[in-house]
């Protein structure tokens, strides 16, 4: 069924290191494909993929759709806002109705953590998690690690700090699993109110001082503050957050080494990262987006085969 150890991609937690390496090697080939004049191969021409987005998304959705189209799959797009979900239909009913139209793979983003795991137990199709609430965002973690590998040669032994809203970030959790599996050292940095208590059990370092974290790391992955998920106040004001944890060019220039800056998007310019860094050669933000298509093509190709 699948060339990976799992029939679905629900999270990085339950795939193996060799799965990740296989995805990267396949993505290398697809990166070559998407840089050709004709950016398309016919591998998935008899496969139908449904993109079910119950939550807003720009990058991930476009990236998945492009990946699917470049593999010649038939693509079906669904967003919750203009569907029967607003009429009270349950998740399983919605998905089963879509599957009745002969869909092979479901790519789903949902606001509830574990929604993809739940679905995988109840339906026949293969599922790719495109972000489930505050839980996991596996393809983002894969493309982040792939981009580090591309820029620095290897992920193993590299020091990566994830800065920001660790508590509400699915990117942080998936990144921690992925980077640890590939042998990187991981640190999380942010206000102590936004660092979950259990995080140390994943084998990561904790730092609340951004300058110290930057001095330690080779790569800094800056996250957005997820105000839409914060039901209470975790810090006094965004301005104060920016003063303590916002990255600016002066801080980078004061370091006596080069570090790579990443951001999964969407960027809040002037909050977690200033424009002069986001647009500088330190940043690989747009490489991440390009690699996202190749990595997602690899995931879909390996799952489908």
């Amino acid at each position: 069924m699948s060339q990976l150890s799992q029939p679905h991609l629900l999270g990085i937690k339950n795939i193996t290191t060799s799965d990740i390496r296989k995805i990267f090697e396949t993505a290398d080939n697809f990166k070559q494909v998407i840089n050709r004049p004709i950016k398309k191969v016919p591998s998935l021409r008899d496969i139908t993929i449904a993109n079910l987005f119950f939550e807003n998304s720009t990058r991930t959705r476009i990236s998945f759709e492009l990946a699917e189209k470049r593999l010649s799959a038939d693509v079906l797009n669904f967003s919750a806002s203009n569907s029967s979900v607003s009429k009270g239909e349950t998740l399983i009913d919605t998905v089963n109705n879509i599957l009745a139209m002969k869909v092979d793979i479901v790519v789903m983003r949902h606001q509830a953590p574990g929604a993809c795991v739940f679905l995988s137990k109840h339906i026949e199709a293969q599922i790719v998690n495109a972000g489930d609430g505050t839980h996991e965002h596996p393809t983002q973690a894969l493309l982040d690690a792939y981009s580090i590998r591309e820029r620095l040669g290897d992920v193993e032994g590299k020091k990566v700090v994830i800065v920001g809203d660790i508590m509400h970030s699915r990117v942080a959790l998936s990144n921690i699993y992925c980077l640890k599996k590939l042998g990187a050292e991981v640190m999380v940095c942010g206000p102590s109110t936004l660092i979950p208590k259990f995080i140390e059990s994943l084998g990561v370092k904790i730092e609340t001082n951004l300058r110290k974290a930057l001095e330690w790391c080779d790569v800094a992955n800056m996250l957005r503050i997820q105000l839409e998920r914060q039901d209470i106040k975790y810090f006094p004001s965004l301005r104060e957050y920016t003063m303590m944890y916002g990255l600016n060019l002066k801080m980078l220039e004061n370091l006596n080494k080069e570090i790579v800056i990443m951001h999964p998007g969407p960027i809040n310019r002037g909050v977690e990262i200033t424009s002069d860094i986001a647009d500088s050669e330190h940043s690989i933000i747009l490489d991440q987006v390009e690699n996202g298509v190749a990595v997602r093509m690899a995931v879909l190709y390996l799952l489908a085969s």
Binding site: N29, V33, V41, P42, S43, L44, D46, I47, L71, Y301, A304, S305
Partner: peptide
Amino acid sequence: TFYRDDFR
């Protein structure tokens, strides 16, 4: 590889 007719 990506053009083979025996995929799946």
